[in-house]
């Protein structure tokens, strides 16, 4: 990928990702509402919410907390840009983690109990989801011999065929990342939660909007991860992503929120079985069955 292409891809991601994710959030809310026998909000509701939040008064607990949110947004965007210009998958994952750590630090800095508990839970979720993300990069490496998104992208064969475990694992972890039940520990899009709004409790108005925006960028990036499994067949990819997203909404609507122990244990076990299992099988297959 040459420089012009890279810059174009980066710009496209920066501009198009929030639009796409906002629409997706709108569809999400409508489908959720329909599942609950409601009409639901208009499709553009997430945008109304976002722009409204930007117009609200700026209030904060202290002068430093929101500075970290800027880091959250910036590094999530950087992770996405690195991904969509075809860069190193591991760097993408680390940049994404860096962004999340900034978010968590912002919540810690507020020094308020609910945001603190939310931050701790967010860290648990990070710990639960991180191995699977790294493992998926490893899976791509074993399958294609490269960590570069560009190389993986341009492979002619369908990766889902040899990496089904990785795909399943990523879908599992996506539930955590999208903050869907049963894994919406740290914060939730719904109102009633034992820790109020958790990690976002102390952030309001424009700061909350920044968090939402960063979350949108993150969503598109994660969907990009899943896209890689179907890269040669774009239509199948779109179909599969739609199915996955629908599945997430369905899970959100048919599950209670679980305990952190359960979230951590299950996602590590799932990662170890589906992800690592897939990896080891591939490893032995590639060596012609001889250990």
């Amino acid at each position: 990928m040459n420089l012009t292409h890279a810059i174009l891809a980066a710009l496209l991601y920066i501009v198009a990702a929030p639009v796409l994710a906002g629409l997706l959030a709108g569809v999400d809310r409508i489908i959720s509402a329909r599942m609950q026998a409601r009409i639901g909000p208009p499709l553009l509701q997430p945008f109304y919410d976002l722009f409204k939040l930007f117009q609200k008064e700026r209030i904060a607990v202290n002068k430093t907390g929101h500075f970290f949110l800027l880091g959250y947004l910036l590094f999530t965007i950087i992770a996405g840009v690195e991904f969509f210009i075809g860069g190193d998958l591991l760097i993408v994952i680390f940049a994404l983690a860096l962004g999340s750590v900034f978010f968590v630090l912002g919540a810690f800095a507020a020094g308020s109990p609910y945001s603190h508990i939310g931050a701790e839970r967010e860290l648990i979720q990070l710990m639960a989801s991180e191995p699977m993300l790294i493992l998926s990069a490893m899976g791509f490496y074993v399958a294609t011999g490269s960590f570069q998104v560009h190389d993986i992208w341009s492979r002619p064969d369908l990766l889902i065929v040899i990496l089904p475990g990785m795909f399943a694992g990523l879908v599992y972890v996506l539930t955590i990342k999208l903050r869907k039940s049963p894994f919406d520990l740290a914060t939730s899009h719904h109102a009633h939660q034992e820790i109020v709004k958790g990690i976002t409790t102390e952030f309001s108005g424009p700061y909350l909007a920044v968090i939402e925006l960063a979350h949108w960028y993150e969503t598109i990036l994660l969907l990009g991860f899943l896209y890689l499994f179907f890269a040669p067949w774009p239509w199948l990819a779109v179909l599969a992503l739609a199915a996955v997203y629908f599945l997430e909404i369905l899970a959100d609507n048919t599950n209670a929120r679980l305990y952190w122990q359960w979230v951590l244990r299950s996602s590590w076990i799932f990662t170890a079985v589906a992800g690592a299992g897939n990896l080891v099988v591939l490893y032995y297959l590639s060596r012609g069955g001889t250990p």
Partner: peptide, 13 residues
């Protein structure tokens, strides 16, 4: 990631 982040958080909060 978990134990370093919470330590940083403690210092900042």
């Amino acid at each position: 990631l978990f134990f370093w982040s919470k330590w940083m958080g403690k210092i900042l909060s």
